[in-house]
């Protein structure tokens, strides 16, 4: 087990290096650099060549790519991820300031969305073709086909513009948390319910469930100890990356509700050609997803005794 985990961690480090090289090459090859155009409104002006040269020198962008990469990695290994071109703030400060906000938002949405979604899915599976199942289906389909930015804008129009119950966005006081959290959670409820229902329906038809019922087990025990436990395996597969997604935030939710988190920043960083920011955020994503898969794999073994981690003799 320990050996297995160690092996995986070494693998993750390898992946991080590989990804860092790929991203580094990619960001330098997409057309348009950070100093090719003036910022925002004045982009129709070219930056004079001698100033551009100076800026490239200042940020080390005039060096050969491998030198830039080695410098970056050397600094990054010591915890220095550079300074954001766009915000002028050290990346580590930036992440330290924005990530907790995104994490708070993601965790609250999870705390609401996941249990409700699972519960709805289980109930719908146990009572197929009843009003409950239909209700679940309606919610699932609605949230599935409506893009999150539509739901977000609609809720602003209803709750902030028309009813004036909630602020249109921002972050700071608890009433500003309500809308983004709920909009986020609604999407989760739909997704979780759909998935749970499908796995539960499968599990309830399995032979071991029939066996359990034949043994005369109570329905509650059949559903939770046998069916749900088996159904939760695919859920765990889903939850790993989902949790990472939630912890790293959503572009639309954060941009529309003006949440000063990290979720909208990857897209903005690419838009602004903010190289240090792109590198740091994508490495962060890679790391988080790799860890999530590791944890997921370990959890399989805990939930399903048929799966043995690390191989046994």
């Amino acid at each position: 087990m320990a050996r297995y985990v160690l092996g995986r961690i070494v693998g993750i480090i390898g992946v991080l290096f590989f990804v860092s090289i790929m991203i580094f090459i990619m960001i330098h090859f997409i057309p348009g650099g950070p100093f090719d155009a003036m910022p925002t409104e004045s982009e129709h002006r070219a930056i004079p060549e001698h100033i551009r040269q100076k800026l490239m020198e200042k940020y080390g962008l005039d060096k050969p790519l491998y030198v830039q990469y080695l410098r970056y990695m050397w600094a990054a290994l010591r915890g220095d991820f550079g300074i954001s071109f766009r915000y002028g703030e050290p990346i580590s400060d930036f992440v330290g300031r924005t990530w907790p906000i995104t994490a708070q938002l993601g965790l609250s949405a999870m705390a609401i969305g996941i249990p409700i979604g699972i519960l709805m899915g289980v109930v719908a599976a146990l009572r197929p073709n009843t009003w409950l199942d239909y209700l679940t289906n309606v919610i699932v389909i609605t949230t599935f086909v409506t893009p999150v930015f539509v739901i977000a804008i609609m809720s602003i129009i209803i709750f902030a513009v028309q009813l004036r119950w909630l602020p249109s966005g921002g972050w700071g006081e608890p009433k500003q948390w309500i809308m983004p959290t709920l909009v986020y959670a609604i999407g989760l409820i739909g997704g979780m319910a759909r998935f749970t229902r499908a796995s539960m329906v499968d599990a309830l038809q399995a032979e071991y469930v029939r066996t359990a019922r034949a043994k005369g087990l109570q329905e509650r025990a059949v559903v939770f100890r046998h069916a749900f436990r088996a159904a939760s395996l695919p859920l765990i597969t889903l939850l790993g990356p989902l949790v990472v997604n939630l912890l790293l935030g959503s572009f639309f939710i954060e941009a529309i509700f003006r949440v000063p988190g990290i979720g909208s920043q990857t897209t903005l960083a690419i838009y602004n050609r903010d190289y240090p920011m792109i590198m740091a955020l994508i490495l962060l994503w890679t790391f988080a997803i790799a860890i999530a898969y590791l944890v997921t794999d370990l959890l399989y073994g805990v939930v399903d005794p048929r799966i043995r981690i690390g191989g046994t003799k």
Partner: peptide
């Protein structure tokens, strides 16, 4: 009030 560079629903 600080808004993101894209997608902020200013009118709303």
């Amino acid at each position: 009030v600080i808004i993101p560079e894209v997608a902020a629903p200013l009118l709303q």
